[in-house]
């Protein structure tokens, strides 16, 4: 559904919601996850982006998530539960060299609908700031759709400017949920 925008602004195909997660062990996971705001125009995206902390400046344990309005940034959401994620894992030193660039490119891919006809399969993206290594992931809604998932992966890898020697993997949420992190198998790679 095309969201109507105020006169003079450039409407996005979708309204997007930015979420922030801050790890407070005294609270439940859900209580630590907060909706920051929603936007539906190019102008409002930049107004938001320029007023929030860069991902590289967040403390460990924090996440940003950008999801289409109506989809919550968790496996359990109906639009996510049959899906998975293209996962970018970064070395510690990349926080200061590439993390913010990769995250901004990810956001631009999402709001600009960069995946062509398969953009409708995109649910959102998540950046995890962690001491052991940061992660960025693009979440899609259907892990069994090989054509859609691999198209999104190829375009995403190209947009990040990753070398052809770098391999990125797609993991189904159903597999991630039942295995500990590094043991999750890749369903697809590009």
């Amino acid at each position: 559904v095309l969201v109507a925008a105020p006169l003079g602004k450039h409407p996005l195909q979708h309204r997007w919601a930015l979420w922030f997660f801050k790890n407070d062990k005294s609270k439940t996971w859900q209580a630590n996850l907060r909706l920051v705001t929603k936007f539906s125009t190019v102008e409002d995206f930049w107004a938001l982006y320029s007023h929030i902390q860069l991902a590289s400046k967040l403390t460990s344990g924090c996440d940003y998530s950008l999801f289409k309005d109506g989809i919550e940034p968790m496996w359990e959401d109906n639009r996510n539960k049959c899906g998975g994620r293209w996962l970018i894992t970064l070395a510690k030193q990349q926080r200061h060299t590439e993390l913010d660039h990769f995250w901004l490119e990810t956001l631009l891919c999402l709001i600009g609908e960069s995946f062509g006809e398969y953009s409708s399969e995109v649910c959102g993206a998540v950046i995890n700031i962690r001491a052991k290594g940061d992660k960025i992931a693009v979440w899609t809604c259907e892990a069994e759709d090989r054509d859609g998932v691999t198209h999104i992966g190829r375009v995403y890898k190209e947009r990040l400017g990753l070398s052809s020697k770098v391999v990125i993997g797609y993991q189904a949420h159903a597999d991630t949920a039942t295995k500990s992190g590094s043991l999750t198998k890749n369903k697809f790679v590009v």
Binding site: L2, S50, G112, S119, R159
Partner: peptide
């Protein structure tokens, strides 16, 4: 009509709003 924007178009708006 689908609203698609390439990265250069989107980036063109960045510094207008960064200064507001």
């Amino acid at each position: 009509e689908k609203k698609r924007y390439d990265r250069e178009f989107l980036l063109g708006f960045q510094f207008i709003f960064a200064s507001m």
